[in-house]
Amino acid sequence: MSLYSKIIGTGSYLPPRRVTNHDLAAQLAEKGIETSDEWIVSRSGISARHFAEAGVQSSDLAMEAAKRALDAAGLQPDDIDLIILATSTPDFLGGFPSTACVVQRKLGITNGCAAFDVQAVCSGFVYAVSIADNFIKSGANKKVLVIGAEVFSRILNFDDRGTCVLFGDGAGAVVLSASTEPGILATKLHADGRHADILCVPGKPSGGALEGSAFLVMDGQAVFKLAVSVLEKVAHEALEAAGMESAQIDWLVPHQANIRIMQSTARKLHLPLEKMVVTVDQHGNTSAASIPLALDQAVRDGRIKPGHNVMMEGVGGGFTWGAVLAKM
């Protein structure tokens, strides 16, 4: 009998503070930086985003999303036997202890299950699901909690209108369970370190101090060009691996980075835009949290139903990209 992994619960959480483009434009105007709602929407499709309050960390957002995913799955925290958390904004400098371990503690999980972080920036959730899928199919685990959580507002340079208007904070989670029914149909992951400089945080810890900048820097045009190219290809790779065609996709849940990239990908897959889940307008780019946030919203509002085929795909700094094709 074949063993599969299947998504049995989704959850998400946004910090309460909602920041509109008008709010951000007013804040930047005080610094002498000009922007507007029209300028931001026309370039990104973003109208608002959520920012965490001071003292709120990625693990806090992750814990809330995880609780909701566990509730949806009908599980208790100690039913989980592996935690994988994707983030580029871990609770601690250097990434240890891992934010996954912090979440394990905050959820009250005391069964000694493994927990670790994954760093693939905006592709992190796709990477984490692929890893979880392989752990389950190997027989090593039965119930895996996969989380994407970010507080990107902490690494934004609010003197750079080209990047500070694009990102937001949030967390999303899924529970993957061992199943005799097909769930995760195919995953494909890629990276190309030659493009590491087009999206990065170049600062480094050195002797207890920061060497370089702790702010995100991005070559927007280079990222756009590469993203449009690789997203179509990796989606077709996942479809081919599953023996399916794009017409069999019920929903496209792409990384919520830029509406133009998302629409371009849908068109290249010959999917009507009505089949694409869009949250970038209200969430901004929440990096590793964006796909599970969008997935949970579409599950909870009834668009994504059991049996639907869902294509999830993302690109991120590294440069990384990947896709997960799942039957819900």
Rank of each mutant, 00 (worst) to 15 (best):
L24V: 09
S179W: 05
A214M: 05
I84R: 00
G172E: 08
R18P: 00
E38D: 12
T10A: 15
D219I: 02
H236V: 13
S213H: 05
E232F: 02
V103C: 10
P77A: 05
S177T: 15
H22M: 13
A191P: 05
K225M: 01
I8D: 06
R43V: 03
T110C: 09
P272W: 12
L239Y: 01
D91R: 00
I291Q: 04
W39N: 02
N134M: 07
G322V: 07
A191K: 14
E64V: 06
A171R: 02
R161A: 08
L269T: 06
K31A: 11
L107G: 05
F224T: 07
K67N: 11
L28E: 05
R17E: 04
S47F: 12
A222D: 11
M1Y: 10
K204C: 06
E232L: 03
A62L: 09
L231W: 03
N21H: 07
L82C: 08
V144R: 01
E274V: 10
I261W: 08
N285Q: 00
D79C: 00
L239P: 03
L271M: 13
G74I: 01
L231D: 10
G322H: 06
A69E: 08
R303V: 14
P306K: 15
L189W: 07
L24M: 15
D301K: 08
L210D: 00
T265Q: 14
R154C: 12
L61M: 08
H255A: 04
C200G: 00
A241M: 11
L273A: 07
F158M: 04
E150Y: 13
I46K: 03
A178I: 08
E237V: 12
H195S: 10
M311L: 15
I198Y: 00
G183C: 02
C122S: 02
K268W: 00
D301W: 07
V151A: 11
I8E: 09
G317Q: 06
G307Y: 01
